[in-house]
């Protein structure tokens, strides 16, 4: 039966399109009833927990009071957005968010370089061991990694002592010093994610046609040239996709990590939009105001993804969509 359908191809489609929309629905339902029943719980899940919050964004334009509900709350337009843009902390939050994101964006090439280095290793066994070791930090929770950092860079911590001996860093808790927060944050993130993020590039590397390397070798290309002219172009699409995804996260800097590492002494350089949303919304229960701040954040992120995607489509025709 299936074969016949495939053979007919466009003929079959024409017959289908003659049916009205309702008839097609009925036919589809008859055939795939069980499939729709199976996916129903997942659709309900998505409706509540993924799309529910999207509709919940509407409270950014209300004076939302939980007791009155969304429909009973007063509409206030852009009041909360105005309040945020004129807030004393607005520029500080924006500056910190962008600064921390850009610094962690600087580490973007690191996993690519690691993947290339792992790929060039002669011994497969050593490469395997190196991979096993570098993936480990991914499996250690952010809470534990951050606490290790806090303890090790504390006033009597091992890292503080070493840096004291080498560079004369003061033997005080380094995370209480605003000028150390950013490097510590970026290095912590890098330590935790470097190995794991390289996997995707490693798997892209295995997809490169080996004949290309042979051709390059015949043409007299050295290792370095092969890497530059065969390997890198081969994984370029993966790099671009990862870069676009990373752009989308720029305004959602790892706020969990920030929240675990910052303290009152470093608030001035460490407070980002999302940690501010948490304090305003959850701790102080200013739901509408913090939702407006979150919505601003969300729109900027989404915009950045769209722009990056557009640019990469223009440059080499390979974007996310």
């Amino acid at each position: 039966m299936k074969d016949r359908k495939v053979q007919k191809g466009s003929g079959g489609n024409a017959a289908v399109s003659k049916l009205t929309f309702r008839q097609r629905c009925a036919k589809d339902w008859q055939k795939n009833k069980l499939l729709y029943l199976m996916i129903m719980p997942i659709l309900i899940y998505y409706a509540i927990f993924k799309f529910g919050p999207m509709f919940g964004l509407s409270i950014a334009f209300l004076d939302y009071k939980p007791a009155r509900g969304i429909l009973g709350s007063r509409f206030v337009g852009f009041k909360h957005f105005k309040a945020f843009f004129t807030n004393y902390y607005f520029f500080r939050l924006l500056r910190n968010t962008i600064k921390i994101s850009l610094c962690s964006l600087l580490t973007f090439p690191c996993p690519i370089i690691l993947a290339l280095l792992l790929n060039e290793l002669k011994s497969a066994k050593f490469s395997k061991v190196a991979q096993t070791v570098t993936y480990i930090p991914h499996f250690i929770s952010t809470v534990v990694v951050c606490s290790m950092v806090i303890v090790l860079t504390g006033s009597g911590g091992a890292i503080t002592q070493i840096l004291h001996a080498l560079f004369g860093v003061e033997e005080k808790a380094m995370l209480n010093n605003p000028s150390y927060f950013l490097p510590i944050y970026v290095l912590t993130e890098l330590w935790q994610t470097l190995g794991w993020n390289s996997i995707i590039y490693l798997s892209a590397l295995t997809g490169i046609d080996q004949q290309l390397y042979e051709a390059a070798r015949v043409d007299g290309a050295g290792r370095w040239q092969q890497m530059l002219h065969v390997t890198l172009p081969g994984i370029a699409p993966t790099i671009i996709i990862m870069f676009i995804l990373k752009m989308g996260k720029i305004f959602n800097v790892g706020y969990e990590r920030v929240m675990l590492l910052y303290n009152d002494a470093t608030l001035n350089v460490a407070d980002v939009i999302n940690t501010y949303v948490y304090r305003q919304g959850i701790v102080q229960a200013q739901y509408s105001y913090s939702t407006a701040v979150g919505l601003f954040n969300c729109l900027v992120s989404f915009g950045l993804v769209l722009i990056t995607n557009k640019i990469s489509n223009k440059l080499n025709g390979s974007g996310l969509w």
Binding site: R24, D28, P53, M54, G56, N274, I282, G294, N297
Partner: peptide
């Protein structure tokens, strides 16, 4: 399956755009 495409598009959309912390908390 007629509605699969629409469902997939919606699900993928939710990956790039979400309500954020506070609406999620309230839901």
């Amino acid at each position: 399956v007629m509605w699969n495409h629409l469902i997939t598009v919606l699900i993928v959309f939710s990956m790039y755009f979400n309500g954020g912390m506070i609406p999620f908390f309230l839901v």
